[in-house]
Design a protein around this nucleic acid. Structure first.
Lengths: 200, 200
DNA sequence: TTATGACTTGAACAAGTGTTCAAGTAAACC
DNA sequence: GGTTTACTTGAACACTTGTTCAAGTCATAA
């Protein structure tokens, strides 16, 4: 085995993150991984199979980061710096401001069943992570006990999605920082009456 | 001329909105428009040329809707129902919950220079529309005079983007409605100190 | 030593891609 | 009436797509 699978998946992650599923052609993949088509197919079965592993790897990674935020002594400050790190980074890593999962959602129809499932499940996993952050923040008395956990978790994920799209296009880092500040203000303030009868 | 250009562009809009630029193949376009390749190329020069017109048409449309919100007697309630209409619609039009512009941003690199420019300019136009809504809301005393117009406009556009991604995946309309309520609460509350020295 | 199985190579494949072009139609202008 | 112009047709083009396959490598197990 020329390269360890871990190493290969990391290279593939960068490529899919940058280009997306469709635009990353098998030739691009071959170049990025320095592997010939036969090797790729023997190890990963198909382009979609490789993509699936990439998504799972990405989710695992994000999950670890979000759990670290939840475990921090001050979840809210940790959340703030998590947002900042994810959204304000050097120019050559600008593509990382976009969320791989959200980017994939826009091309869900062309990905195929298994890859699709990996993406959808990944979104659910991350939503759970946001929920534990909110819970822990309440425990630490950084958020009022009245904060609706599931609603706030969904909302936080939303904010993250919106901010990523914003940060992708925005060249003024200060503007991004201001937006992050606004998120943490709104997190602590009033919530609407939840219109959902039974949250699932 | 078999079909009026307006009519053709509307059909093309639906297709690109549903599939995105890459995934919408020329054969799909031919079927959707009921036109042969030669006709399409004679009239629109290329796939990108057609896409460019679609984007411009989409921006024009959105602009009109947003301006109507700004002109309403109560901009805030008009904004609320604009969000609701855009994000909660019948299942067969679910694809419209996604913003065509934002969807295009994720595949900006494969679109080509002219299409790219149309998308980026479109985003700027809509940002301006959001700014006038905020201004008008201040005039109508629905928002405090202290509201930072440009910041709030950017923020509103952001919220819209995040919500569209959320609504696309969410099957519980009540959850979407709750999120919209939250936007209107946050719009009226505290703003962070703007870190940007000179807004551009 | 031989056999197994996971991995590698690179040429080749069928199907799909956006686009072109010669030929035809029909309304508009001189 | 003739020329121009805008549009239409559908076959064909060159290129790219994801994938396959016969053949080869090489470490491990029997």
């Amino acid at each position: 085995m020329k390269y360890a699978t871990q190493e290969v998946i990391e290279k593939a992650t960068v490529l899919f993150w940058q280009k997306g599923f469709q635009a990353a052609g098998m030739r691009d993949i071959q170049d990025a991984l320095d592997m010939r088509p036969g090797s790729i197919y023997a190890r990963f079965k198909s382009k979609e199979g490789l993509f699936q592993l990439v998504v799972e790897h990405y989710v695992e990674n994000s999950k670890a980061k979000l759990n670290a935020v939840a475990e921090a002594t001050s979840p809210c400050t940790a959340l703030h710096s998590f947002f900042t790190q994810a959204l304000i980074n050097p120019e050559e890593y600008r593509f990382m401001r976009q969320c791989l999962l959200v980017k994939s959602i826009t091309e869900l129809d062309v990905i195929g069943e298994q890859g699709k499932q990996a993406v959808v499940e990944g979104m659910a996993v991350l939503q759970q992570c946001f929920a534990s952050i909110v819970s822990r923040a309440i425990e630490c008395q950084e958020l009022p006990t009245s904060t609706p956990v599931d609603l706030a978790a969904n909302w936080l994920q939303n904010q993250f999605v919106g901010l990523r799209a914003f940060a992708l296009m925005q060249h003024d880092n200060a503007a991004i920082a201001t937006m992050i500040d606004k998120v943490l203000i709104d997190l602590k303030t009033q919530w609407p009456i939840n219109r959902t009868l039974n949250a699932h």
